[in-house]
Amino acid sequence: MELISIDDVRAAAERVQGKVLRTPVLHCDTARGGLWVKPENLQQVGAFKLRGATNALACLEPGIRAAGVVTHSSGNHGQALAYAARAAGVSCTVVTPENAPPVKVAAMRRFGAEVVLVPPAEREPTVARLAAERGLTPIPPFDHPDVIAGQGTIGLEVLADVPDVATVLVPVGGGGLASGVATAVRALRPDVAVIGVEPELAADAAESLAAGRLVPWPPERTHRTIADGVRVGLSERTFAHVRARIEKIVTVTEDEIRTAMAALARDARIVAEPSGALASAAFLAGRVTAEEAPAGRTVAVVSGGNVEPALLAETLVPPTGHA
């Protein structure tokens, strides 16, 4: 499997410049010390996915792009592709699992996407059918070199804004974000540790790395986690990137995810969805020890903030019921 290069990431940065937000890196004081966060929840669609979708769409030949695009997504990639497609004046269809958060489904429709709801296991077959029937071009949420390169622009920005960074923590679901960030960081700063973070209830990537081969988890296992954005597993392409360029993968519990959501809201004024809080959760829970990561600044990627209001409110209320 051919891996993307730093040149691919740099080219993507040029394509998305002015079309996506160059998010800042912010300091967050926590009980475990200082953490730096990259708040991709500030993107126009509330998640990092806009980078990959914008780059992939820009790479299509004009005639192919004009025929329209299709994808599958639990929400964030669907929103991103819909937003980018609307800006380019092309149609976008998103195949979405029936249990996707309503706030994300509503946002996809608001950005102009046709949303097709299906059982989780039928997402990819439905995309293939619609592409064949309508002449649409599939743009996968992570299993595509142009998507991975677009996500890698986050790594370039982290290195530019935090020259003394020692560790970058990144959520792992389908692996596009982790693959892209690790490509950029390891190419330019091989001394920096890039560590992936998964929920314990959807730890297929950690198991795959341990086994040395791709170990898929069925939807009935991964859908137990509240982190809906990482319920999908690695592809052969992203597994190849992760295995070659990620230092390791650690896991966090559901309670630790909720705690991180609350900490980001209270300490950094950042609204993070469960998937977006994964990287910060690993830091706050002490999942990355001094022996596993070099001394220096730690940057956690907050991948998104498209959270159901009720869930966010729930995480902000401590067990005693007092704010």
Rank of each mutant, 00 (worst) to 15 (best):
R10T: 08
A11E: 13
V16D: 00
K19T: 07
R22Q: 12
R22H: 09
R22M: 09
A31F: 10
A31S: 05
G33N: 12
P39E: 15
E40W: 11
E40H: 13
G46Q: 14
F48Y: 15
A58Y: 00
C59D: 15
G63D: 15
A80P: 07
T93H: 06
T96A: 15
N99L: 05
M108P: 01
R110I: 02
G112N: 02
R123I: 11
P125D: 08
V127S: 09
A132W: 10
A132L: 13
E133P: 00
R134V: 07
V147P: 00
V147T: 01
D161Y: 05
P171D: 00
A178K: 08
A184M: 12
V192T: 03
G196C: 10
E207Q: 15
S208W: 02
L209W: 13
A210W: 06
G212E: 07
V215C: 06
P216I: 08
R221F: 08
V232I: 11
L234W: 03
T238R: 04
R243Y: 02
I246W: 01
E247W: 05
I249T: 03
T251M: 11
T251N: 02
A262D: 05
A263F: 01
A265R: 00
R266G: 06
D267V: 01
A272K: 04
S275T: 15
S275H: 03
A279K: 03
A281T: 03
F283Y: 15
R287L: 02
A300M: 13
V301Y: 05
V301M: 01
V307I: 14
V307T: 09
V307D: 07
P309W: 09
E314S: 13
L316S: 04
G321H: 04
